[in-house]
Design a protein around this nucleic acid. Structure first.
Lengths: 202, 202, 202, 202
DNA sequence: GATGAATGAGGATTCATTCAT
DNA sequence: GATGAATGAATCCTCATTCAT
């Protein structure tokens, strides 16, 4: 019995592959334009230029399409983070952290609406081991970066830095802000400030 | 021209008032328990102990119920922020900021699931002038606090601080973290660090 | 959480009751005309003169409609059997058995196609305690009748007599036979013969 | 005018023959395991190790596959009956009848689920001359056996004996009874009793 | 001949909303 | 005002069948 969230058939032939990708692409477009509620299987099929039957040849359910997109997004985010972490390996904290934050921001900045919709989808979908693993890798990249540079409580700090990144991008997006260069600088500042500031009472 | 998102009638009589509130309370309970998707008008009516027909006497649509709850949440958040700002009027930045951050966190901390569901509802609903105004007041409270204490770019900083607050609470919640005292401290630290840190290159 | 095979709402008002019965009646007509495969919810609703939404107010699923019809059929069969058994209480075997057989045959004879369709439905549906109980009562009526008159292995004999009844009616129906008086006589003969015949070797 | 229920081509070559049989075998397996509803053409093709396109080279429709299986079942039943009748040619009624009954029971006993599924399929399918002919031969075997031994109304009696056989086996199966030796004895007893018993009033 | 990708009519079910009583 | 029965558009999904490669 195959996992119902996995693609139903692994596309090997060229035509199959194209259909498979067309369905994902159509779904991403609709998510970006109309959000999660706009994604109906018939609409996806229509936009993909495919019959509803074909859609169900490749995905066992509507959720499976969303799950695949979420999986790809998380995969892409973790890949970017790991790459940034590798590049920053020998840099000091104040140079390494901005690089990681920039990597973390990238996806939100590149496709803000799609990413928000996919994160919403992620909360609706059953927890997926794949997705959890990728998120764990992102956090681990932060943890490693911080621990190697002597930061205390690196697990907690990683969580906080990921959270503030996401929160600040979303807030900027909500306020229609478009100066991403400035935003990245502020996010890096927030992270470094968080790591170095000592509260008066603490 | 009647705004379809406003309650259909202003309840003046006691019984009307009670029914009106019962519907909102029922909706809030369902949102907290099952999220936005669990809110169906029939279910709300049933839990409120009201017929579906009566529900539509008080609210013109399902969305109108959600809009009213969103409005109240934003109202409550801005009230809390304004109060905190008033109390902190004469305190220095490093004492005022934690007070504001704490006020901003409160709602998320007190009812995390309900608040998340209402924010999700908010993104689905058409922009409401009421809600925008309350959010503006929250931001203005931050702006005033910062400007009075000589912080540069207070508009931008207010936005960032609100964003990081929300982001860090949500991340903590997603990681099942429950030590809110620690979380509040870290959020205050992030805010103060953000305001005071100078990037090497900047 | 209510049993999903039970009617969703117990109809108390006159209009409700009428709708409820109209749905069952429409389903029975379709079963009789086209068999189980002809029963689609939309078709039932249409024939009942009711919207599809109304149908689902009264029954949680297509199967629930069928289950209710099966339940009624079994109820009616057991009632008839028990009545016959009561009437035959003081009669000797050779008079009692034909009465029971006649009662057992009645439903098949009165509505052969509908009954066949409902029995087919019964095998598809999850076992229902109600239905099993009614079937048990039918068998128990036979058992009691036989045991009181000194028949050996009355449980087994009851099962066999019920089986032969059903088999002979169905075969007659398949052969387009319509002389039910003759059929009943033969069924009674088969039953009595079964009970009294001694195999040469046995 | 091509009968759409007939196999599309007569397989002469070995490979064709093998494919044809594989499809039938796969269908029989699915029928036995999951009943008529489990038989989908794609599933049959998959289990037969054949593409769906090939399946439609050998059978014009799903029903044609089922029809062929029904035809074979009836063929096999009639062959067994005719053989039993031949063997019993010179035996007296009370020895001949049990032999015929046993032959009639055999198929139900050997593959109860498959046989039940095929009989269900038979009722769904359009009447087939082939199938009717085989059923006629079964009945004729009984008729001949009875007439030769002086039984009155042999046509009617044959019908009744076939019916009671089927009914008793099905009832036993429904009751999870597995002692087929006992069952066969009882079926023979029912048949002989039916043939010899004289109702008091008759 | 074989393949399997593609088709789309059709079926079950939900739920916001209306309106007769 | 209140009630709740009724509505039907919209949604997810299946499966027999076709046809380009």
């Amino acid at each position: 019995m195959s996992n119902s969230k996995k693609p139903r058939k692994t596309p090997v032939q060229a035509r199959s592959r194209a259909t498979f990708e067309a369905i994902l692409e159509a779904t991403a477009q609709i998510l970006d334009a109309d959000g999660l509620a706009g994604v109906t299987t018939n609409r996806v099929a229509e936009r993909a230029g495919v019959s509803i039957g074909s859609l169900y040849q490749y995905f066992p359910s509507r959720d499976a399409i969303l799950a695949e997109l979420v999986r790809r997004m998380r995969l892409s985010m973790s890949a970017r983070l790991l790459a940034a972490n590798a590049v920053a390996r020998d840099l000091p904290l104040e140079q390494a952290v901005p690089m990681l934050m920039e990597a973390a921001v990238h996806q939100y900045q590149a496709e803000p609406r799609l990413t928000a919709a996919l994160e919403e989808a992620e909360t609706r979908l059953p927890r997926s081991a794949d997705v959890l693993a990728e998120k764990r890798r992102v956090r681990d990249a932060f943890v490693e970066c911080l621990r190697n540079r002597g930061v205390e409580q690196p697990e907690e700090a990683a969580l906080d830095m990921i959270g503030m990144t996401r929160g600040m991008v979303m807030a900027a997006r909500g306020a229609q802000e478009v100066d991403y260069a400035s935003l990245r600088t502020r996010i890096a500042r927030a992270a470094m400030g968080y790591l170095t500031y000592r509260l008066p009472g603490g």
